Amino acid sequence: MDCTKDPRVDHYIDALPPWQQAICRQVRDLVHATDPDVAETIKRTVQPYFVLDGNICALLAAKDHVNVFMYDGGIVPDPHGIITAGHTNKTARTVAFREGEAVNEEALGEMFRAIIANNRAGGWRKLKGAE
């Protein structure tokens, strides 16, 4: 994969249990594969974020799951029903993965592409305000 990876994100992922590392690496690779211009950074001191004209998603490993925060203002459709929390959140919704659960790359990739398209169109706040 031809993308620039932030060593601080590597450090975050490498400190996790192996099953969480695998999920985080899979999500990381997927978001980069969605668009070659996606950049990664650390925000909130330690949290990996993936950005392109605004936030796309962030990773946060918890004790028994990995959260992928989708920064879409709740406007990106979820036809596969992968959102697990934050349905009424005004900023981000969550897809949580537990040990042994498969990442639905098709569904997650569709959401990443939609978020990136919205970011390039001015961001979900602008788009949501136009409704």
Rank of each mutant, 00 (worst) to 15 (best):
T34K: 00
F50E: 03
P36M: 08
H32S: 04
D29L: 00
A58Y: 02
R44Q: 11
D35E: 07
I56A: 08
D35S: 08
A58D: 02
D53V: 15
D29N: 05
D29K: 00
A58L: 02
T41A: 10
A39H: 08
A39G: 08
V46M: 10
E40I: 07
I42E: 01
T41L: 10
V31D: 00
A33N: 05
T34W: 02
D37Q: 13
Q47D: 11
C57T: 05
T41E: 13
T34P: 03
Y49C: 09
L30V: 08
C57P: 02
V51L: 12
V31Y: 00
L30P: 06
T41K: 09
V38M: 11
C57A: 06
V38E: 11
E40M: 05
T45P: 08
K43I: 06
A58E: 01
C57E: 01
H32Q: 03
D37T: 13
K43E: 05
D53W: 15
R44F: 14
D35R: 01
A39P: 02
A33H: 06
K43M: 06
T45Y: 13
Q47C: 13
G54F: 10
N55C: 07
T41Y: 13
I42G: 01
L52C: 14
K43H: 08
Y49I: 09
N55I: 09
Q47N: 12
L52S: 14
I56K: 05
V46F: 12
G54E: 06
P48G: 04
V51F: 13
I56M: 09
V31E: 00
C57V: 08
D35K: 00
A33F: 07
L52E: 11
C57M: 04
D35Q: 05
P48N: 04
V51G: 09
I56V: 15
R44A: 15
A39Y: 07
H32C: 04
G54C: 06
Q47W: 10
R44W: 14
Y49M: 08
D53P: 15
Y49K: 05
K43Q: 08
A33Q: 05
K43T: 04
P48T: 05
D35V: 12
I42T: 03
E40H: 10
